[in-house]
Nucleic acid binder design. Structure first.
Length: 565
DNA sequence: AAAAAAG
């Protein structure tokens, strides 16, 4: 138990400088730079005869001008002896509700072996120690491999990234090998796959994942996001890019500078797709997808993933899709039974002292010594700075991340949090979505969000890949409008709802407050086409054809933890 | 009302 940071909390803790670990190889030898993509991936997978456990050192590969080995990156927290490995730890679920709709839905698979992803990718799946596909992967991968557009709704931490990456990588190996590759540095990068995400850190994380999945396949992966110097990203782009991971702002910039072109895009994936299409982002996304040369729906394959998918956003999204399949896996949003949700009534003026009580209690209990990280969400950037400062002054090892910090500061904060150097991180919604931070045992909503979907994503930073997690919310008077949707969400997740919250929800039921999705019920989302039968005509002209018999199914999926979103 | 993303 001595491993808990809290054991040392009485002492004055100076902000520890986190041990920096290499996150990204920076140098690629000249011999590697313009290597053309082979039609046959096996050429790049000389290990297929070696055992799955054999991983060559990056040193020897660098020496031979190969990909640096992304599997060698030493994860943090190794001193605690936590073996993440496959992270298989699911007993809680027997029935995962699954909804699919759309025409001719391909059948799900039960194992990776059933799917013909190709030798190179299969080896990387083994290297990642993924044993079985997660429920969303079981359904989404066959759908994508069949070439279908997809709108997928699956719990946080359930393996969405791999679900859209595997078909892309497999498809590029299979179908794009004959593509003429530039023999020399090309000024304009022409990726065949584009993966967009709403924050820089999430794009960076996806980039790291994609590199693992495409190791030794010959596929070139690059990342582009703002806040970082342009030159390194440009250098990477000049080497040729098959899969580009990006945030919208920097991507538009690169396109307008004629350093990236979208004419050859065959695969488009939007992670956190509902966020990408909300008010703030939608114009940019529409520009990228519709006005900058990308092939139209039908000429490309489009995949949208999120844990939440309000039907207004689904309607917007259908513009980007052609004859798509809707997939919903798991219960409402994130709330797996793995996350224990608590709500406490706390007046705004009492929040800080209440937080301190909570932090002290966590020390006293000695629980979560291996799930020691605490993520505290606040509403504003200023609030994040001020709470971080207050925590530090009071001897708590805290850091903070928000959009007014410089990108190096943001990345440093995340590293320092992940490593456990500062096991408390105060964050705005910049950290609410998609980030996979192992060992987050406790998410505290110091300020609750206005939108219940944001709550779902925030608490989804814990309870990932089969690990349990705790989520505590400080509910104050200003959160009245959230009472109804919050209590409904908690009930659907089999959580105990305090009486005061129920009556609060009762009182505000006729007023504002976004109720849970139309159709309600047990699913994280419903195909909006079901409730708006004929209003969904999109530019592609594809219309929804109800096919209840084959189009709608309940799966009996046993979760085995593997990759995450 | 706020957050994010371009600089």
């Amino acid at each position: 138990m001595a491993a808990s940071w809290a054991d040392e909390m009485g002492e004055v803790v100076k902000p520890a400088s986190a041990p920096s670990r290499p996150t990204r190889p920076s140098y690629v030898p000249p011999a590697r730079r313009n290597k053309p993509l082979s039609a046959d991936a096996r050429e790049y997978c000389p290990l297929s005869s070696a055992g799955p456990d054999f991983i060559p050192s990056s040193r020897s590969h660098r020496a031979r001008g190969r990909d640096p080995n992304p599997f060698e990156i030493v994860e943090t927290f190794s001193e605690l002896g936590v073996s993440d490995g496959g992270g298989i730890n699911f007993d809680a679920y027997d029935d995962i509700p699954v909804e699919t709709s759309g025409a001719d839905v391909p059948l799900p698979v039960n194992t990776f072996a059933e799917i013909d992803l190709g030798d190179a990718l299969n080896e990387n799946i083994k290297r990642c120690k993924y044993v079985k596909p997660t429920p969303v992967q079981r359904y989404a991968i066959p759908i994508s491999l069949a070439g279908r557009d997809l709108m997928a709704c699956a719990q946080t931490g359930s393996g969405k990234t791999a679900a859209f990456c595997f078909p892309i990588i497999s498809g590029i190996i299979r179908h794009c090998g004959l593509r003429q590759r530039p023999a020399r540095k090309a000024r304009i990068a022409n990726p065949v796959a584009l993966i967009l995400s709403p924050t820089r850190e999430l794009s960076s994380q996806i980039h790291d994942e994609v590199k693992k999945f495409s190791y030794l396949t010959g596929i070139k992966v690059a990342v582009a996001y703002g806040g970082a110097p342009m030159y390194q990203q440009l250098r990477d782009l000049e080497k040729g890019v098959d899969i580009l991971v990006a945030t919208p702002g920097r991507l538009v910039d690169l396109i307008e500078r004629a350093r990236v072109a979208l004419q050859e895009i065959k695969y488009l994936a939007l992670d956190e797709a509902d966020r990408m299409l909300d008010m703030g982002f939608e114009p940019q996304i529409r520009k990228i997808v519709e006005q900058l040369g990308m092939p139209p729906p039908g000429m490309r394959q489009t995949m949208l993933f999120s844990a939440t998918f309000p039907s207004e956003i689904q309607r917007l999204a259908s513009d980007f899709l052609s004859n798509y399949i809707f997939l919903a896996v798991g219960r409402v949003g994130s709330s797996t039974d793995l996350i224990s949700q608590r709500v406490e009534y706390v007046r705004d003026v009492d929040k800080r002292s209440h937080l301190m009580d909570l932090l002290h209690a966590q020390r006293a209990n000695g629980i979560y010594s291996k799930q020691a990280l605490i993520l505290v969400f606040v509403e504003t950037k200023r609030g994040a700075d001020s709470l971080e400062n207050w925590l530090c002054v009071n001897g708590f090892p805290a850091t903070a991340i928000h959009g007014d910090r410089t990108q190096p500061e943001r990345e440093q904060a995340l590293r320092s949090f992940k490593s456990g150097a500062t096991p408390i991180m105060v964050a705005t919604d910049v950290a609410a979505r998609g980030l996979d931070i192992p060992h987050v045992g406790h998410v505290i909503n110091f300020d609750l969000p206005k939108d219940i979907d944001d709550y779902v994503h925030r608490i989804g930073r814990t309870g990932r890949a089969g690990k349990p997690g705790l989520a505590t919310a400080f509910f104050s008077d200003v959160n009245q409008p959230l009472a109804k949707s919050l209590s409904e969400l908690m009930q659907e997740a089999n959580q105990e709802v305090p009486d005061w919250l129920l009556s609060c929800a009762q009182r505000s039921s006729y007023g504002g407050g976004k109720s849970r999705r139309a159709g309600g019920g047990r699913f994280g989302g419903h195909d909006y086409r079901r409730s708006h039968s004929y209003s969904g005509g999109s530019s592609s002209g594809a219309s929804y054809q109800p096919q209840p018999a084959q189009g709608y199914s309940f799966g009996n999926a046993s979760i085995i933890a593997t990759g995450w979103d």
